[in-house]
Design a protein around this nucleic acid. Structure first.
Length: 224
DNA sequence: GACCCTGCACGACGTGCTAA
DNA sequence: TTAGCACGTCGTGCAGGGTC
């Protein structure tokens, strides 16, 4: 089936970066984004998405995909399935709590992004990344500030990263039910703070984060 | 050159308001 | 009542500029 010309693509400003690359002959453009960087507990997740260049009918199915923070959980889950069906290739990667603690959150985020790219069935020829760069990967890269609001590929990746991490935190919540990870996903909510004060940290907690360190100290003192 | 501070980037949640 | 949105706040790292 012949693809429609690029000029027929929907006029979506979040496709501007992809369209300019596609028109230059760069067809496998991977959007990369992460989730879980600010959380007190759990791994950091990243996803990579390669959209079908020039296929307006497929891209139309992604109308409404935007920054995952601005979408409801229900909308994210629905679009995640559409993205997986629509993308030429996609991948998800994680960096563990141990890697976050030993390397720092930004290097661990890069690690998760590289794992997401390795999980892609197709090798990209250009990367669109939200704010960061991946010097370890020898590919042309475009680092976009507020990339998830400016690029459909990055927005799609942010949706997959967020939904994958949420699902993992729901699973992990079964191992540590007293913390309520299925509700706050490891972020610093009042309930999470109270659980830390009551139960102390578990292996999922990022003990290098100041609030976790502080609450862990309080718990140890109260426990005697 | 090393250190510190500030501003900005990202990721979220909590709260209050508005509309259906 | 529920869902969506905007805003403030909190966590981190990085870059740039000033100071010693």
């Amino acid at each position: 089936m012949a693809r429609p010309p690029l000029a027929d693509l929907p006029h979506d400003p979040t496709l501007a970066f992809e369209q300019s690359l596609w028109q230059a002959g760069v067809l496998h453009v991977a959007g990369v984004d992460e989730a879980g960087r600010g959380a007190w507990a759990g791994p950091v997740a990243a996803a990579a998405v390669i959209l079908p260049s020039g296929d307006s009918a497929l891209l139309e199915r992604l109308h409404g995909v935007r920054d995952s923070k601005q979408m409801t959980a229900k909308a994210r889950e629905g679009f995640a399935e559409v993205i997986r069906q629509t993308a030429l290739a996609w991948g998800v990667g994680f960096a563990s709590v141990e890697e976050i603690e030993t390397q720092g959150i930004v290097p661990a985020t890069r690690l998760a992004m590289m794992r997401a790219l390795q999980a892609c069935a197709l090798s990209p020829t250009h990367l669109l990344i939200d704010a960061l760069r991946l010097p370890e990967i020898p590919l042309p890269q475009t680092s976009l500030i507020k990339g998830d609001a400016r690029s459909l590929s990055i927005a799609a990746a942010s949706v997959l990263a967020k939904t994958a991490r949420d699902a993992l935190m729901r699973d992990l919540a079964r191992q540590y039910p007293q913390y309520g990870f299925e509700l706050h996903k490891g972020y610093g909510t009042a309930r999470h703070r109270a659980a830390l004060e009551q139960w102390g940290p578990c292996p999922l907690h990022r003990r290098t984060y100041r609030p976790v360190m502080h609450l862990s100290d309080l718990w140890e003192k109260s426990a005697g």
